[in-house]
Nucleic acid binder design. Structure first.
Lengths: 233, 233
DNA sequence: CGGACTTTTGAAGTAATTCAAGGGGAGTGG
DNA sequence: CCACTCCCCTTGAATTACTTCAAAAGTCCG
């Protein structure tokens, strides 16, 4: 099997930024490939955190589920992202479930092996600190949004963030490049699919977005931004 | 000035766990002390992230403020905790404001110096990954709570978490060991001080807690736990 | 003992959920 | 190619948990 594509993936991943080529090659040697289709599960909440993955292509959804079955989407992962960070940070089990929402290709490592690599190459550990710091920052802002903003603003922020993280330019505007249902948006913004549906319909009437079955295109990002940032009252 | 107490603090801090004594001594040499009184600010949201601190004693509150002045409490920090993690993770500015709620003593370092130390001693970088991973996990759970639980459960969770992180055993029960107003609890649980007041009054009638001006004692942790975990309906 | 904060409690208002029902699109299989 | 079925989305109406508004009563500190 040709392994050059894997090396390219590693070169682009934030986790390995600044790592010498020789070390990357060594890291690549100890990795394994994993493929997933839409809806397949990579790791399940509560599983022992024994593996770490890097997303090569495709998108995945990270969710947390309560004991009574309610779900929240923590974030989406795309190419270059780390999946299963608990394997790095010493967590015993995965705090969330990671599910593919697309065709996905991932590279995986044994957690203990990756920890040895990090001890030998502190730059990678520093990158991990930066990655977790950025995620912590992002989720902090979402927590603040949840507490201070009304539903419309939260949905606007959610859509803008997704467009930025996973947007694809099209003639009509920026399309979120993976299947995204009203229910998914509701679980990200902390509301119900009904409210999301009403809100998107409203925006569609104003020409701000164009949406359909599991599909959202942002046509007027400016106006959406204005909604996201307007004073709450 | 006697510097042995500082060394003891470093030995106990999670960030420096597993670091050889000789290295700790060196780290201590490059640190400076900082004292704060109730209400004084350590770092302000948006300030350049040039320093890192470890809490030696006292408690601090981490908040985020929106452009229109609304505030959310992200977490509280206590002895051994890292304050100003952005200096580690490469953030340019501090994402939140850190304010003392007590008399506090902290040790501080220049961010660049600490980064050099971490590159030279990967165990510290690994500890930083573990610390950030744990914080990320905790805030994930809070985000989920916000989205799936009603106010009473959220307040219960908040009080239990604070009692666990900063609890002091007393004859009456576990007392949260720093001044904590209804407003503070509201900003942590994502509600208003009125709702917090009503809820606490109700719990007080049931003998679950004992509270007063900026003071909360958990008498029946079991019952509070039951409230925190009862099905939402 | 004045004055500033903090807390309590009632009453009114409302944003968003819940309940309910129907309509469309995409894929499948005859 | 049409019909069937399964999702997903939409939209109205009723309900409600929580906020907002308002006012008064404690409590701490100088």
């Amino acid at each position: 099997m040709d392994q050059r594509p894997d090396l390219e993936i590693l070169e682009k991943a934030e986790l390995f930024r600044g790592t010498p080529a020789a070390v990357l090659a060594e890291i690549q040697t100890s990795s394994f490939r994993k493929r997933l289709g839409d809806g397949e599960v990579l790791v399940r909440q509560g599983d022992p955190a024994t593996t770490l993955h890097i997303v090569a292509s495709g998108r995945l959804r990270v969710t947390q589920t309560t004991s009574d079955g309610q779900q929240v989407i923590i974030r989406y992962l795309g190419p270059g992202d780390v999946a299963g960070y608990a394997a790095l940070s010493g967590g015993e089990t995965h705090p969330g479930t990671v599910t593919a929402v697309d065709e996905c290709l991932l590279l995986g490592w044994n957690a203990a092996a990756m920890k040895r690599i990090m001890m030998a190459h502190p730059i990678i550990a520093m990158n991990a600190v930066a990655i977790l710091g950025a995620r912590y920052h992002e989720i902090q802002m979402r927590l603040r949004e949840r507490s201070t903003e009304n539903v419309e603003r939260r949905i606007a922020h959610t859509v803008l963030r997704l467009a930025q993280q996973a947007g694809r330019r099209t003639p009509r505007g920026v399309e979120i490049a993976f299947p995204l249902s009203r229910q998914d948006l509701a679980e990200m913004a902390g509301t119900t699919l009904h409210t999301v549906s009403r809100t998107l319909s409203n925006w569609e009437d104003q020409g701000i977005i164009d949406s359909g079955r599991r599909r959202v295109v942002v046509c007027k990002a400016q106006m959406l931004s204005a909604i996201a940032n307007e004073p709450s009252e």
